[in-house]
């Protein structure tokens, strides 16, 4: 009874954010255009590299194209820089006092909010991008996963990736309790993490030594894992390893984030926000 009630609280947060996300249709359209242009330019650049030296490609051109389209389509799910200004303002502006008054854990509330935000954005944006990605002429066209099990593994990995990314953002929010410059923290994290997650260059394109280290970091568990699994060109062993790492990092990041938030809550209570 009590837990059902709690879940309903988070559900209502979730629905609120979702409806809010849907209302901004112009924003969605703009996002789609932006991400499509971004993907297109990235693919054209890779195609120029492919023309120059196809032998140096770490995966097939087809897989690269699919990786990039998926990356753009599901940008809202996996990225770590889509932090919410509202949460930052709550912390720095002292409105956190209100949130602390509510019978709800800050960590859980923020995670519900962020997930809702990500899903509402992704739902609106992924379909048009995917449709276009399946319609463009052959070498630049996205391909489907080879079989249903691969697709299911991709879905599992995507859910884990979204959760890892969200859990990471929670840590960033938590850290802003302890710093005087949330904007600085944010921008530092944003660029570094985007790079480590493969947002600038897909991780397979990194030199081997660098790549091996990057694949172990939590950031590779955000988008790199699902995007690689989708094309079905990984061995079963590699897939299993990636999923295992995703599980590991999800648990680790949630533990770190929630204890960080607990300390922060206590700090906010003592200092009066």
């Amino acid at each position: 009874m009590k837990s059902g009630f709690t879940i309903r609280k988070y559900q209502s947060f979730f629905r609120l954010r979702f409806v809010m996300g849907l209302q901004y249709r112009a924003a969605a359209l703009a996002g789609i255009t932006t991400q499509f242009a971004w993907g297109f330019l990235a693919i054209m650049a890779f195609s120029a590299f492919y023309e120059t030296d196809p032998a140096a490609f770490p995966m097939s051109f087809q897989d690269t194209v699919t990786y990039i389209w998926l990356q753009q389509a599901f940008l809202a799910l996996f990225n770590t820089w889509m932090l919410e200004n509202e949460i930052f303002d709550t912390i720095s502006g002292g409105n956190i006092a209100y949130e602390l008054c509510r019978p709800i854990r800050i960590y859980n509330m923020w995670i519900a909010r962020s997930l809702a935000n990500r899903f509402s954005r992704a739902v609106l944006r992924c379909l048009p991008i995917l449709i276009v990605a399946f319609l463009v002429p052959a070498p630049y066209r996205m391909v489907l996963p080879p079989d249903v099990p691969t697709f299911l593994l991709f879905v599992l990995s995507a859910v884990l990736g979204t959760s890892v990314a969200t859990a990471f953002c929670m840590i960033v929010y938590g850290l802003t309790f302890f710093t005087i410059s949330p904007q600085g923290v944010r921008i530092l994290f944003a660029s570094l993490v985007d790079f480590l997650a493969g947002g600038i260059i897909p991780i397979p394109f990194m030199p081997d030594g660098v790549r091996r280290v990057m694949e172990l970091l939590p950031f590779a568990s955000m988008q790199n894992a699902p995007l690689r699994i989708f094309t079905g060109s990984l061995s079963a062993q590699e897939t299993a390893r990636m999923l295992g790492l995703q599980f590991f990092w999800l648990i680790a990041l949630v533990l770190i984030g929630s204890s960080l938030c607990r300390v922060a809550e206590r700090k906010a209570c003592i200092q009066g926000g």
Partner: peptide, 13 residues
Amino acid sequence: KRNAGFGEAVKSL
């Protein structure tokens, strides 16, 4: 105009 509710939000798309 913007009306409340999930259905309205979808409609206003």
